[in-house]
Design a protein around this nucleic acid. Structure first.
Length: 884
RNA sequence: GGGAGCAUAGCUCAGUUGGUUAGAGCGCACGCUUCACAUGCGUGAGGUCACAGGUUCGAGCCCUGUUGUUCCCACCA
């Protein structure tokens, strides 16, 4: 027997009796950093595997949703790294233009100043300081979680790399005519004072009112009654529309109205857009402040009168209402209309109102000159790529959501009236020339003038995020990184981000690089609170991942986030789940400790040279099928299933059974057998740790360090491979009989209230004598028995026995005074009833010719075997009943 | 109005391409100071898989419909 190692175990005293993550998590992470294990190397001999971290906003700190997102990515990348891929997980943060600027503006306000006071330059200086502070905080949190990302390639959406890519992408789109500037109705946030894209609007059902106003018809006593939810916009009315088929108003079409309070003369127009059934069937038309009215205005060539300033106050068009806030103006207008007798009625009305997804202010649709990306030509290839499976959604139902968005997409408003962000690379010359340039131009190419002014606006933050999969790799340069790592392999993100980001990366990647940016999109759900509510600031129900790490350790947090989850489904975060995870890891810790303690000072043989016993083959077989199942699940990104299979194996098979089964040998006299036993324990432990590592990296690395004969770190160890040589299917199946026997004895003892400590004598009618003999000591120990004897008939077990049919045969246990014949009879009868039910079920199936003819042979054979087994059981139980 | 999800044990959820007697955790009951672990061990109770049809030899799983529920999108001023 070859000796692989004298136990090197750092003194076992170092391993505490309970798992204490604080002892090692930070140290382990530092070791990984030190060893540069996260750094991705361009290695032509390896296959690259690339994941781009969705860059967290620098607005604050990581929440539970991030924790899950990052854990999933880390688990996948660690798995792939161990499988031998050249793994790049590229981390970064997002400047989050609007969100960050909003926060800084708020902060300035609390300091009694404003961004206007500071000026653009000083404001940007502050913003960069903010970035340093919060960006750094986020990175610290990612490290706490155990994220194995390549910090050498850390990116920021406004760093030089990304900025260069943004300018390139903008200019290319502009040159192709896919970016234009125009006056359109856009969503305007009067608080943030910027335009927003359609995707950034959050609608909510708000309670409001419906005001009915009379507009007098010019040169007549007649009125036309309109209804509105936003009276203040009447200042900008340039028509009233009715449905062309509406007989009530047919005579008024073409007539002129006098707009109350303003005095402007406006026409009555006929337009299909108007719903006869709704309101009064007459709609005031404010083309400058309503998207539908805007369209009506275009069709009827109506003037557009903008009545609101950027901050939501009434402008000069509003006459005496000028300068009032929109809501104050609303109040005054209603009052005046009432005074003039033009207010017909007010009805309560609930309607969907758009809010700024950042500051929640009620948005105003406003006509404004903005920059847009023409979406139709870009959407098409992005749809095709998913149709053709070049990019796959996991689970695939999210492809539908993606299609839904792209098929109904409107042009993307990309300009923001903000300072923090990528400034649009457009310059205006006094001669009227508009220059789009990658570099800051010094002269106008048209007139040669040098008085060039750069566009004040910034780009939507998602414009730069859209380039993330390749801008971070150096695009537009054909850098070695770009060539090796792009396209990326999988994008991991939540379903709520599909319209903002996934979709935009898709069309941007295809447009700019000619390739889809990622092969798979792994979509996960939201992390909710214990009651299933979304975690939010306003509810105050958010749980800080760092607090959980502080209390339970990062591994526990990670495992709790990955167990019991199904792809794409929301999950609830509960304390009991983390506790379960902590308990599980403690189990791993103690099982390891047990193996190592027993191995201390022993010469442990190589696994390959051990003569395996049935129990050994059983655990090896279980290990192998676990390796296979876990690997398959991981490859399909079924992390929840993989975690379940793995934890089941570790806790039940390895800890509850195999370790217990191994004790007689470990405590026995036979030194050789003891060493062999240790060899198997060590082998299973080592492989188990490797399988667990992607999920709970810290503790597995820590324990790995204690293993004898192991060199290097587990983070770069080879992932276990399924080996058919060790599948031992038949033997493992046979061994299940031993387990069943032990369980049967235990259950019998409990059934008759036999004290667990009382050793019983077992009598067994079986054909598997050898299997039982080999495992005799383990059986006696686990079942709490004193002796086991083979008999050929139950009578040999004596009087006052209880019996039970089990997989290995028929078990009899004399229990003397404990046996209550009445109870025993009842128990057997209940068992008989169950078995008869099974016989009826299986028999019925087999009596069906269609089943025999159409079901696969294996299914039929299994059913036959089952029937035989139950018939045999029935006979034995009946005999036992008659013997009683 | 359009789309998607969910409905399985008291609670929270798994359930891989349809195929043994539908699983887990927590909780519950009973019993264990068994020399790795009480963050533990053992045994157990608990489910007409929302409802109604259909396809199939066979349905928790596939199809149709119904009900309840959650979410996304669109939106009537």
């Amino acid at each position: 027997m070859e000796i692989i190692a004298l136990i090197k175990v750092k003194d076992m005293k170092e391993m505490q009796t309970t798992y204490n993550p604080k002892d090692f998590e930070d140290r382990i992470y530092a070791d990984w950093m030190e060893g540069k294990y996260f750094h991705a190397e361009i290695d032509p001999k390896k296959v690259p595997f690339t994941v781009m971290m969705p860059p967290p906003n620098i607005t604050g700190q990581l929440h539970m949703g991030h924790a899950m997102d990052e854990t999933m990515q880390d688990t996948v990348t660690r798995f792939k790294r161990m499988q031998g891929y050249s793994v790049l997980w590229l981390p970064g943060t997002d400047h989050a233009s609007l969100a960050t600027e909003h926060k800084i503006v708020e902060k300035l306000r609390s300091e009694g100043t404003s961004k206007e006071n500071l000026g653009r330059e000083e404001f940007l200086r502050r913003a960069w300081a903010w970035k340093e502070q919060y960006g750094g905080k986020i990175i610290g949190q990612l490290k706490k979680l155990g994220s194995s990302c390549d910090w050498d390639r850390l990116a920021f959406t406004m760093d030089d790399r990304c900025s260069k890519a943004v300018r390139e992408a903008f200019c290319r789109l502009h040159e192709k005519g896919l970016i234009y500037r125009g006056s359109r109705i856009i969503n305007w946030c009067p608080d943030c004072r910027t335009a927003l894209s359609d995707e950034e609007v959050a609608y909510s059902e708000d309670k409001g009112s419906f005001w009915y106003f009379n507009y007098p018809v010019k040169g007549s006593e007649e009125f036309i009654t309109i209804a509105t939810t936003r009276p203040e916009t009447m200042l900008g009315d340039t028509a009233v529309a009715v449905n062309p088929n509406d007989e009530r108003y047919a005579h008024l079409v073409g007539k002129t109205l006098v707009l109350p309070l303003v005095g402007r003369e406006i026409p009555v127009v006929a337009d299909d857009y108007v719903d006869v059934e709704f309101g009064t069937g007459a709609v005031k038309i404010t083309p400058a402040h309503d998207p539908n009215d805007f369209e009506v205005g275009l069709r009827h060539n109506l003037p557009m009168i903008k009545v609101l300033n950027d901050d939501g106050t009434v402008n000069g068009e509003g006459g005496k209402f000028q300068g009032l806030d929109r809501y104050e103006a609303r109040k005054r207008i209603v009052e005046e209309m009432k005074e003039k007798g033009l207010l017909v009625k007010i009805e309560p009305h609930t309607h969907n109102v758009g809010h700024c997804h950042r500051c929640n202010a009620t948005l105003e649709p406003i006509v404004s000159k903005q920059w847009f990306v023409r979406m139709k030509p870009l959407a098409k290839p992005a749809i095709d790529a998913v149709v053709k499976n070049k990019t796959k959604f996991v689970p695939d139902r999210f492809a539908k959501i993606y299609f839904n968005w792209l098929e109904n997409i409107r042009d993307w408003c990309i300009s923001r009236q903000l300072w923090w962000g990528h400034r649009i690379p457009i310059w205006y010359c006094t001669c009227g020339e508009v220059i789009c340039s990658r570099e800051t131009p010094s002269v106008c190419p048209k007139c040669g003038g040098t008085d060039l002014k750069q566009e004040e606006d910034c780009l939507d933050t998602w414009f730069s995020s859209a380039l993330w999969p390749f801008s971070t790799l150096g695009w537009p340069e054909e850098t070695p990184d770009f060539k090796y790592f792009y396209p990326t392999d999988v994008l991991v993100t939540g379903y709520d981000i599909i319209p903002f980001w996934v979709m935009r990366m898709m069309f941007s990647g295809i447009e700019h690089t000619g390739k889809v940016p990622f092969r798979d999109v792994l979509i996960h759900g939201l992390v909710r609170d214990e009651q299933g509510r979304k975690m939010s600031k306003s509810l105050g129900n958010g749980i800080d991942p760092l607090e959980v790490i502080e209390k339970y350790g990062a591994d526990s947090l990670r495992l709790s986030l990955l167990t019991g989850i199904a792809p794409g489904n929301d999950t609830r975060f509960t304390d009991t789940k983390v506790e379960w995870a902590r308990n599980f890891i403690n189990k791993v810790w103690n099982a390891s400790r047990f193996v190592l303690m027993n191995a201390k000072g022993e010469k442990v043989p190589k696994f390959e040279e051990i003569k395996l016993q049935p129990a050994d083959r059983w655990i090896i077989s279980r290990l192998m099928s676990t390796v296979r199942e876990v690997t398959l699940s991981m490859q399909k990104y079924d992390l929840g299933i993989a975690a379940d299979k793995l934890t089941d194996f570790v806790w039940e098979d390895f800890c509850d059974w195999y370790i217990e089964l191994s004790k007689p040998a470990l405590y026995g006299e036979d030194k050789e057998r003891k060493r062999a036993q240790l060899g198997v324990l060590m082998y299973v432990l080592e492989n188990t740790l490797k399988l667990l590592h992607p999920f709970i990296p810290f503790v597995t690395e820590e324990i790995y360090g204690y293993l004898p004969g192991v060199k290097g770190k587990i983070i770069v160890a080879d992932y276990p491979r399924y080996n058919t040589k060790y599948s031992y299917k038949k033997e493992a199946k046979a061994f299940e009989g031993v387990i069943d026997l032990v369980k049967t004895v235990r259950a019998m003892k409990v059934a008759v209230n036999c004290p667990p400590a009382k050793k019983v004598h077992l009598f067994l009618v079986t054909e598997q004598k050898r299997l039982v003999c080999v495992n005799k000591n383990a059986i006696l120990r686990l079942a709490g028995a004193s002796e086991i004897d083979f008999i050929s008939d139950g009578a040999e077990a004596g009087e006052k026995t209880v019996s039970q049919v089990c997989e290995l045969g028929h078990l009899f246990v004399p229990l003397g005074e404990l046996v209550d014949f009445k109870e025993e009879r009842a128990r057997l009868e209940k068992e008989l009833e169950r078995v008869e039910g099974e016989i009826a079920r299986a028999g019925g199936k087999l009596a069906n010719n269609n089943f025999i003819a159409k079901a696969p042979k294996k299914v039929v054979d299994d059913e036959r075997a089952k029937l035989e087994k139950f018939i045999d059981m029935k006979k034995k139980i009946e005999k036992q009943l008659s013997d009683l």
